[in-house]
């Protein structure tokens, strides 16, 4: 070849931007193939000048493709490198390119799900949501900005990494790095999920388990407090010293459960849901069921 055609940074940015819409034409037949071809178009236009070469390139990229939408970026990078070599006369056939795509998409999807859907999104989502519950606009803003910075940076740098590493990337991938990332994310994810179950799944039982009349001195004797501000002061100091407000000490079922571990009922409910899901009960049925349970238990004063 007399001239070497190279993809410029501008071309690669264009591919990166288009890959944002990778899943746009997601379909049951070949899944992300349309979006993949759409993403490759700037590169195909640049690399192949002859019409029949362009058509061949478009056709080979309309084949089945499906992976995690963000983890498609390193695959795109490698494919860009391969197409570039091919356009410059290297003997890379359709099978090789398709082989690299299929070979990478499986393992990468296995990384993307635990890292992005099960770890980063629940954590950022919970952080944003807990702020939003207090009415703070910072919640949605932090979630939106942080997520998109992470996503865009990740997609750009992994695409560049794939482009520069080229076909060599398959060797790097077999190394421990991907496994470490997946495992690390899973640990963090499981840890956070544990705390989310405790903090945000709310199951409260209201029945009173016991009512005990307490002996004198264990409760604040409201009838015999000094008058005015002095009385309030005495009452507050008595309460601070551990005296209860009422003569009758009520213990609810919830307090009993919480004295074991706070949030125990939430944990049991979560485990029960996991079991139902494993029994192939649809999450939708469980969700609607829980609403019904909430209403019924409230009506019979259990919750």
């Amino acid at each position: 070849m007399a001239e070497n055609i190279r993809l410029t940074k501008k071309d690669r940015i264009s591919v990166w931007w288009r890959s944002t819409f990778l899943q746009g034409s997601w379909n049951y037949e070949r899944m992300q193939n349309g979006g993949w071809t759409y993403s490759m178009i700037p590169a195909i236009k640049k690399l192949y000048t002859k019409k029949e070469d362009q058509i061949a390139a478009l056709k080979r990229h309309m084949e089945f493709f499906n992976t995690h939408p963000y983890l498609a970026s390193p695959v795109l990078g490698v494919t860009l490198a391969l197409e570039e070599e091919r356009a410059n006369g290297a003997p890379i056939d359709d099978v090789a390119i398709q082989g690299v795509k299929v070979g990478m998409m499986g393992p990468l999807a296995g990384v993307g799900d635990p890292v992005f859907w099960f770890t980063v999104r629940p954590i950022l989502g919970a952080l944003g949501a807990s702020l939003a519950l207090t009415g703070s606009i910072l919640g949605p803003i932090i979630f939106f900005v942080a997520w998109n910075i992470i996503r865009m940076a990740f997609m750009w740098y992994t695409q560049e990494f794939g482009y520069k590493a080229g076909s060599k990337i398959t060797e790097d991938m077999s190394g421990g790095l991907l496994q470490d990332v997946t495992k690390g994310a899973s640990i963090l994810g499981m840890f956070i999920l544990g705390s989310l179950v405790n903090r945000w799944v709310s199951v409260k039982f209201t029945p009173v388990v016991s009512s005990i009349k307490q002996s004198k001195g264990a409760y604040i004797d409201w009838a015999h407090l000094p008058k005015g501000a002095e009385g309030i002061k005495t009452a507050l100091s008595q309460q601070a010293s551990g005296m209860s407000l009422d003569r009758v000490k009520q213990t609810t079922l919830q307090q009993n459960l919480d004295s074991l571990v706070p949030g125990l009922a939430a944990l049991l409910l979560t485990l029960f849901c996991m079991w139902l899901l494993k029994k192939k009960v649809s999450p939708i049925v469980i969700i609607l069921g829980l609403f019904v349970v909430g209403v019924v238990f409230h009506v019979i004063h259990l919750m």
Binding site: V197, W200, L269, M274, I286, I287, V292, V293, G294
Partner: peptide, 28 residues
């Protein structure tokens, strides 16, 4: 009121379903 309160209580529990789905995927 009993319906809206009950739905609120149900909503507090529904949170568990989403977590259970994710935990099922990650738990080893």
């Amino acid at each position: 009121a009993w319906l809206t309160d009950g739905l609120g209580i149900g909503g507090g529990m529904v949170v568990a379903v989403g977590y259970a789905m994710v935990i099922n995927m990650m738990a080893t």
